[in-house]
Design a protein around this nucleic acid. Sequence first.
DNA 1: ATCGAAGTTTGATATTAATCGAATTATAGA
DNA 2: TCTATAATTCGATTAATATCAAACTTCGAT
Lengths: 109, 109
Amino acid sequence: MDMLNDNAEARDDAADPLDAIELQEMLLVLGDPVRFKIVKGLARLGEANCTRLDLPVSKSTATHHFQVLRNAGVISTRNEGTARLSTLREREMERRFPGFLKAVLQQQD
Amino acid sequence: MDMLNDNAEARDDAADPLDAIELQEMLLVLGDPVRFKIVKGLARLGEANCTRLDLPVSKSTATHHFQVLRNAGVISTRNEGTARLSTLREREMERRFPGFLKAVLQQQD
DNA sequence: ATCGAAGTTTGATATTAATCGAATTATAGA
DNA sequence: TCTATAATTCGATTAATATCAAACTTCGAT
């Protein structure tokens, strides 16, 4: 792999995934009931792992939904021992889609 | 089972369909590319029929998407001769989901 | 009366996405 | 090193829904 490509990939990796997603896609990402619950849970808890959120699906399905959220730029995840702690990227969501996440979160079920 | 349509019959006919829909369902309603285009088109044109919006799908598919939007309470439709003119229910959307439609519409593609 | 334009209805099909179980990886503690 | 916990990967299945063509309805104009 040559140097130019490596740099290009490094740039891609550095870029915010939110820059690559349209609002219409974001609506689908947050439109899934499980992902919606994850987002609301993280908004309430601040930082949490899979287990704490008490999701109504299997582990593999939960992993899938966290990946979708991560790829869309909605959450970020760090490792802490054997757990993976996720947080909402509220600041970045507001930059990319002003007013949107706020409107979503202020809605009570 | 059709998550987007099913509530229509259970609802009181007089009640605003928006009262029977959760935000999570609304995200799915607006998350479809064709419906998203319809909504943006209506926001721009104010009132329009199917034909004017130049949708990339067949007539029957267009009808389907207008129905979903109507059942969700996003649009209302009146007959004018052989055409059916639809409008965005911006006022009612704001009442039900404050700030949401505004945040969606202010986003440029 | 009939024709064309606009939409709807009705199946049937295609596509997309969610879901799960089993096997696997990684880490922390006994 | 062994075990338990947390999560991921893989492959297959199921469920949801978008899509279309064809036949039908309605209305306005010819």
